[in-house]
Simulated assay, not measured.
Amino acid sequence: MSAQRACSASELEMDTPLRVELDGVAIAIVRDSNDEIHAIGDRCTHGDISLSEGFVEGETLECWAHGSRFSLITGQPLNLPAYEPVPVYVVQIDGDDVLIDPTVLKEV
């Protein structure tokens, strides 16, 4: 499979997650305060909660339900109750398009 358009970069608000679904895979896309765009799995590994409804701080995304924070760079949980990482996807930018292949994970 190849990367497909997930959204436009211009529609991403800083520190505000956007949920997209590509080929049945829910992904949270985040433009962080450093203007970097990240894509991680949208489901908290602790409580199966949508991470795109959570809070961004620096390079982390916090689950709104139980407070687990995940690294936007590695997908690793940074505190309990989550202990399993979420997937992190490769992001490509083509003009204003944010492209993601939901079958290709970022090597961290």
Rank of each mutant, 00 (worst) to 15 (best):
W64Y: 09
D32P: 03
E84P: 02
A39Y: 13
M14K: 04
E13F: 00
E21K: 11
R5I: 12
L22W: 11
A6Q: 09
C63E: 03
A6V: 08
L12T: 05
E107A: 14
S10G: 05
Q4S: 06
S33Q: 01
S50M: 04
S33C: 00
E84Q: 14
P87A: 08
C44F: 06
D97F: 02
E13P: 00
A9Y: 07
V56P: 04
S10R: 07
G95V: 11
K106W: 07
S2L: 09
C63Q: 05
V25C: 14
P87R: 04
M1R: 14
T60C: 15
L12S: 07
K106L: 14
E53D: 14
I93E: 14
L78G: 11
D15A: 05
A9M: 06
N34M: 02
F55I: 01
A9F: 06
G75K: 13
P87S: 05
E57Y: 05
A3C: 00
V86Y: 09
T16Q: 15
H38R: 08
E84M: 12
D97H: 03
D94E: 12
E107N: 15
L22A: 11
Q4P: 00
I29C: 03
Q4A: 06
N79Y: 12
D48N: 15
R69D: 03
D32V: 02
G24K: 14
M1V: 13
D23G: 13
T103S: 15
V30K: 02
T74Y: 06
L51Q: 07
T103F: 13
P17Y: 04
T16N: 09
Q92V: 00
D101L: 12
H38S: 14
P85E: 10
G95R: 15
L105D: 11
A26G: 11
F55C: 01
T16Y: 03
I100D: 03
V88F: 10
A28G: 14
E11T: 08
A9S: 07
D97I: 00
V25K: 15
N34R: 02
E107L: 11
L99E: 07
E53Q: 14
D35N: 07
D42G: 04
V108G: 01
W64A: 12
G54I: 06
D42E: 07
F70I: 04
M14C: 00
D35L: 03
V104C: 15
T45F: 08
G54V: 04
V56N: 03
I27C: 13
M1D: 12
Q92M: 02
L12P: 05
T103Q: 15
E59Q: 12
V30M: 06
Q92K: 12
D15Y: 00
E21M: 11
Q4F: 01
G54R: 03
R31T: 05
A3G: 07
A28C: 13
E13G: 01
G75R: 13
S2R: 13
E13Q: 09
H66L: 10
H66T: 08
I73R: 14
M14I: 01
F55S: 01
V91I: 02
Y83A: 08
L105Q: 15
S52V: 05
E107V: 11
H66E: 11
V30F: 02
E84W: 05
G75Y: 09
N79A: 11
E107Y: 10
A9E: 04
Y89K: 15
S50G: 03
I93C: 11
A28P: 09
L80Q: 06
E57H: 09
L80H: 04
L51A: 09
H66V: 06
E62P: 03
N34W: 00
I27D: 10
V56E: 05
D35I: 00
T103N: 15
